[in-house]
Design a protein around this nucleic acid. Structure first.
Lengths: 143, 143
DNA sequence: GTTGACCTTGTAGCGACTACAGGGTCTTTA
DNA sequence: TAAAGACCCTGTAGTCGCTACAAGGTCAAC
């Protein structure tokens, strides 16, 4: 099948497919007589795998490693554990960080009482004040 | 003060400060006789503001808008509400997405029973299977 | 004078795409 | 047959927000 069909089958943009090929994630495919790329089931399965890993937010370099392990059936699979554990930890850290950010934004939003001018804006006032306090704190902490 | 001192006072890297200046977030500063940038309190406060907004994960383009509003005291501040609401919504969406991702990764991690080879790896097996099912689902949904 | 910290401008790179530009191929329709 | 539109190709550049050089200048301390 041609690249558009592969993209249609996997939900991956054709330009992204070409990018993955260039990045070494997808093997160079055969070509039709007119120069068009010609993909088979192997590419389809491999690209679906890559996409699934991307949905899991795994970086390409780690996806590459997983693909290597898939092609080395006798290799030890502790790398796989480590990759997934690492990713899980990153996700958890990010959730905590975003939770804190959500709380801050909620506080900030509550500074807004009613439509008014920028000069009277509670949110802007709070942003400026918080920034000022943070700069002072940095100075005290010796950054 | 020179750029290093400004960076020290705000916790922002000197290269990032120069980047912000180039991006139009910071006004072009005065220069000392030796060509070094010379910053005053105005720049300090402004950069602290920018940094604080970055901590809130606001994109630079929105920070720029907020800075504009700060310099137009008579402008209506509903833009500020919109920016903060928008950011809050983005953060919440991202949290939900990461939560789902966390659950997936936990399921995936539980596929790992013991150290074994890649051929027997429960995680890899699950990744491949899930990718396959997703590709089929995409076909059914007409993507 | 030397050394090391700091400064300058300009360019390039990171990660993961995404969007052209310029040109070729193929099918359908008038 | 020609035109139009969809699809394809390679190569380059851009997005976002930094971050890291390269090459060279400035300054203070030793």
């Amino acid at each position: 099948m041609r690249i558009g069909e592969l993209g249609w089958a996997t939900g991956v943009d054709v330009e992204t497919i070409r990018y993955y090929e260039k990045a070494g994630l997808l093997p160079v495919p055969a070509r039709q007589a007119n120069g068009y790329r010609d993909y088979g089931d192997k590419h389809l399965e491999r690209l679906a795998f890559i996409r699934h890993c991307r949905v899991l937010d795994l970086p390409l370099v780690e996806i590459k490693r997983l693909l290597e392990l898939l092609s080395e059936p006798s290799a030890a699979c502790d790398d796989v554990d480590h990759l997934i554990e690492g990713q899980l930890e990153r996700v958890r850290t990010r959730i905590r960080s975003l939770r804190a950010l959500e709380r801050q934004l909620c506080v900030l939003r509550s500074c807004c009482a009613a439509p008014q001018t920028a000069a009277e804006c509670g949110i802007l006032h709070e942003l400026v004040t918080s920034a000022h306090h943070e700069a002072i704190a940095i100075n005290r902490a010796g950054r």
